[in-house]
């Protein structure tokens, strides 16, 4: 078997999500190749070559791939992927955007967001917002799969010595162009990679009050998240959303503040190692999954918590 992993990167550095996909590939078994498609991304290829367990890095360095436009990258992955038994990508917005397009070009199905490898063709994946876990067997010759990062440990970033091979093929479909982006700038760690996450819900009352949990986050080196209710209420932007329709996180410590614990939210954080809930409603469902629950007014408890850290 041979596995092709589509690397997640920003042309400068390899994103950690890729390392989790490498671990999933190791569980499937077989030679692992990593495709780095981008523009001016040699450094990413060099980084990928050092990842433990990677046998080969394919580098497609071309202006058409600079912004990961699926219209251009998918034909490349489909072309290269014909020689592999599996094509994997992290289940990030980039991977989710790209891989179904690849699968359709290859006339095969896709298995989305696997959380366990049961065999070379059999995988577990959550359905119904994580309220059920399906075991599915792929019937296709080429298995196209996205990998939920939180379900697999990261492969070691060092220790490998893969060869880097340039692949020439350039595909510019001419259907799409990159216009611009607004990347949230934050000194804090990324939500999906943070060791500690503190999230606020509707109970925060407004966006300004998120400053309370930001102060705690700064003391703990934590990322700040939010429930869908807080996003829908306009308190904070959507890229902070933790939940089935937002980001899936599994940090060592997750602190839920003013979050009732809708199924939707639980699906995004219930695999955290330790969960703390602070909520004034002692009936809130969040307490059923919390290791430590504190029934208290968050506007008193959170500043007190900050003071004691």
């Amino acid at each position: 078997m041979a596995i092709l992993i589509v690397a997640e990167h920003d042309n400068a550095t390899l994103k950690g999500a890729t390392l989790h996909a490498v671990s999933a590939a190791a569980q499937i078994g077989g030679d692992v190749a990593v495709l780095v498609a981008g523009e001016g991304c040699q450094a990413v290829a060099d980084e990928a070559a050092k990842v433990a367990g990677v046998a080969k890095v394919l580098l497609a360095d071309n202006a058409a791939y600079g912004h990961q436009l699926a219209e251009n990258v998918a034909p490349l992955v489909a072309e290269l992927g014909k020689d592999f038994s599996h094509i994997l990508a992290p289940a990030t917005t980039t991977g989710k955007n790209l891989l179904p397009r690849v699968a359709a070009l290859l006339d095969v199905g896709q298995i989305s967001e696997i959380v366990a490898v049961e065999g070379a063709d059999t995988f577990k994946r959550p359905i119904y917002a994580g309220n059920a876990i399906a075991t599915v067997k792929s019937l296709d010759a080429i298995k196209v799969i996205t990998v939920r990062g939180t379900a697999f440990d990261a492969a070691a970033a060092e220790g490998g010595s893969a060869s880097v091979e340039a692949v020439g093929a350039a595909h510019d479909a001419g259907k799409s162009r990159f216009v611009g982006e607004e990347v949230a700038v934050s000194e804090r760690p990324e939500l999906t990679a943070a060791r500690v996450v503190i999230s606020g819900g509707r109970g925060m009352g407004n966006g300004e009050n998120f400053a309370l949990i930001e102060k705690v986050a700064d003391k703990l080196g934590a990322a700040v998240g939010a429930s869908r209710a807080a996003v829908d209420a306009g308190f904070v932007p959507n890229d902070m959303q933790v939940g089935q329709t937002g980001k899936i996180v599994a940090p060592e410590l997750y602190i839920a503040v003013g979050i009732s614990g809708a199924i939707q939210h639980l699906a995004g954080m219930k695999d955290s190692k330790v969960i703390v809930a602070i909520n004034k409603d002692e009936e809130a469902p969040i307490f059923q999954v919390a290791d430590y629950g504190l029934v208290a007014d968050l506007f008193e408890a959170v500043p007190e918590l900050e003071g004691k850290l």
């Binding site: 095969v108 199905g109 298995i111 059999t122 959550p126 359905i127 994580g130 309220n131 059920a132 876990i133 399906a134 075991t135 599915v136 067997k137 792929s138 019937l139 296709d140 219930k270 969960i275 002692e282 307490f287 059923q288 999954v289 919390a290 290791d291 430590y292 629950g293 504190l294 029934v295 208290a296 408890a301 007190e304 918590l305 004691k308």
Partner: peptide
């Protein structure tokens, strides 16, 4: 058919924890 559904099971339950009295 590109996949075969072998099994559907409920997710692993998370054991509830304790309530603490203070910060």
């Amino acid at each position: 058919a590109h996949t075969e559904l072998l099994k559907v099971e409920p997710p692993a339950e998370r054991a509830g924890g304790i309530k603490v009295a203070s910060v």
